[in-house]
């Protein structure tokens, strides 16, 4: 998979490092010559120095054969135009634009460019963690059709002390892993659950609430 990333700073650096580590072919476009030199020394990625909203620079970066493009510059207008050029002129199948102004995430969607706002994502993460300390939503899979959630069982939990096969679990839910004293166990029906266990659950959005209720006893 070939990914183009247009942007600067730490987000760009760590994303590129992450993608390279997964074996993706990463091409970075950055306007600052000094940062480009640093990036090319630190990363295995190809670095193209220039304005990512210039069609010639996108072409130099190999936009024509890219599978995805990420525009994460600090300027929303640049991110929008970069994605539009990439998808319209170079037929890049997947483009994503960072909306620095959270309102622009919707604006981008309405203009046909998938957008995301870091402010919103971090904001909602903080809210979730603050309101439900024992529950962590790890990641949505399959465009949010599957949830992977981690719950820390406290002593009041209705499932503590029970065998897995005796728990009345709603349909379409799975206890994927139990982490006990930092040892992961892939459980079977004969495994029990204890207070302090960290349980990783796989649920679907429609039964997410009932499953959480079964494990915590609280209403969601």
């Amino acid at each position: 998979m070939k990914v183009l990333i247009v942007g600067s700073g730490k987000t760009l650096y760590f994303l590129s490092r992450n993608f390279s580590a997964r074996g993706y072919q990463v091409v970075i476009i950055n306007r600052n010559p000094e940062e480009c030199i640093q990036l090319s020394r630190q990363l295995t990625a190809t670095v193209v120095c220039g304005d990512g909203s210039d069609a010639d620079i996108l072409k130099d970066a190999g936009a024509m054969g890219a599978d995805a493009l990420l525009a994460i510059t600090p300027n929303d207008q640049d991110n929008l135009v970069i994605c539009q050029l990439a998808s319209r002129k170079f037929s890049v199948p997947r483009t994503v634009a960072l909306a620095n102004d959270p309102d622009n995430a919707e604006v981008f969607e309405k203009l046909g460019v998938p957008g995301f706002s870091i402010t919103r994502i971090v904001g909602s993460l903080i809210e979730q963690r603050a309101s439900l300390e024992q529950i962590t939503n790890l990641l949505p899979v399959g465009e949010g059709r599957v949830n992977v959630t981690e719950i820390v069982l406290d002593a009041d939990s209705p499932v503590v002390g029970k065998l897995l096969k005796d728990i009345d679990l709603p349909e379409n839910a799975l206890v994927a892993v139990v982490i006990r004293d930092s040892n992961p166990i892939v459980p079977r029906g004969a495994n029990d659950l204890l207070a302090g266990d960290r349980v990783v659950l796989i649920t679907l959005p429609e039964n997410h609430g009932p499953v959480l209720k079964a494990f915590t006893g609280e209403q969601f």
Partner: peptide, 16 residues
């Protein structure tokens, strides 16, 4: 003086 600002504002004005 910024092309991208003009293009974004024009699209927002027209589309939204």
């Amino acid at each position: 003086h910024e092309d991208n600002v003009n293009l974004m504002v024009a699209q927002v004005a027209q589309g939204i």
